[in-house]
């Protein structure tokens, strides 16, 4: 009698967890199906080659926004990846336990947790106001600030996985510490570090808020990094909140391109990691 009740309760709770898990996945399929359905019908070759057209005209594209996203993510990577990896090396190889390392780890966690729009505000007040104009460079800076803590976290995890015997083998051969890190430890962890970097790139590629008041957006090609530059997420935001049907179509197409980019990066990052563990 009592056991039957216990078994019933067990069965009920486990069913609830299973159902809840599937409920959690409904939005994923909801979003993906709408983006694919609406995106494909609006996607064309012109979308990748043309500049945006004035409102109401069809046939415009987002070529400048696609290139803009690539450029700014590239700037962010150029700054964020080296700083992140070097800081992570310090945290694992030179100094794991001192107050400085604890402080840096704390700062890393804080930076991961603060809203990305805050980064936009800071870069606006520090860079845009000082330089006097919105620019691609400012956008890249903002994205790099979001990237740094992500890279530190993932790189640190990877370096921690390397066993001490590998480091000791290096020292036993009389190789200096710096060389051990560069020639033995980094190559061993390379795939994991690259995976982390790709995930960080995927994450910042979709960021909108930090670009709103740094890179601003641009209906035309930017001729230098010191000019406002369009990006896919900002363009999607502007088009989605506009009242024009043609622009809504473009926003769906842009979302399809953006999501594809993010998912491809995620999948290939996972693939790279799996081939390592086998």
């Amino acid at each position: 009698m009592n056991d039957r009740l216990r078994n019933y309760r067990n069965w009920m709770m486990l069913s609830i967890f299973t159902i809840a898990t599937f409920i959690a996945l409904i939005p994923l399929f909801g979003v993906l199906s709408y983006v694919v359905k609406n995106g494909i019908s609006a996607l064309s070759l012109q979308f990748f080659t043309n500049l945006p057209k004035a409102m109401g005209l069809s046939g415009g594209g987002m070529a400048n926004a696609i290139v803009g996203t690539l450029i700014m993510v590239f700037i962010a990577s150029l700054i964020g990846i080296p700083i992140g990896i070097l800081a992570a090396i310090y945290l694992t190889e030179y100094d794991r336990h001192s107050w400085l390392s604890v402080g840096v780890r704390f700062a890393t966690d804080v930076l991961t947790g603060i809203p990305s729009i805050i980064v936009g505000i800071v870069i606006y007040t520090a860079v845009v106001l000082k330089m006097g104009n919105f620019s691609a460079l400012a956008g890249g800076f903002a994205l790099s600030i979001i990237m740094i803590p992500l890279i530190i976290r993932s790189t640190e995890e990877m370096l921690k996985l390397i066993s001490h015997s590998i480091r000791e083998a290096g020292y036993a051969l009389g190789i200096s510490k710096g060389k051990t890190i560069l020639r033995i430890i980094l190559p061993t962890a390379a795939k994991g570090i690259i995976t982390g970097a790709m995930l960080a790139v995927a994450r910042v590629a979709g960021e909108t808020a930090p670009l709103l008041f740094t890179a601003l957006g641009n209906q035309y090609w930017a001729h230098s990094l010191n000019e406002p530059m369009a990006s896919l997420p900002v363009q999607i935001f502007q088009y989605a909140t506009s009242p024009y049907k043609e622009w809504h179509q473009q926003a769906w197409a842009g979302s399809l391109v953006l999501i594809s980019l993010v998912i491809i990066l995620n999948l290939s990052a996972r693939f790279a990691f799996r081939s390592r563990s086998n």
């Binding site: 080296p82 700083i83 070097l86 800081a87 090396i89 310090y90 945290l91 190889e93 030179y94 400085l100 390392s101 402080g103 840096v104 700062a107 890393t108 804080v110 930076l111 603060i114 805050i118 980064v119 800071v122 600030i145 740094i148 803590p149 530190i152 020292y171 009389g174 200096s176 510490k177 710096g178 060389k179 890190i181 560069l182």
Partner: peptide
């Protein structure tokens, strides 16, 4: 450890980058 100039440079570089994260938070 036997330290050379390159070794010192590596240490200082990584140290600076680690500190820069702390500075970044305070600066923001």
């Amino acid at each position: 450890y036997k330290t050379s100039f390159g070794d010192q440079l590596m240490w200082i570089l990584t140290l600076l980058m680690a500190i820069s994260v702390l500075v970044l938070m305070v600066w923001m």
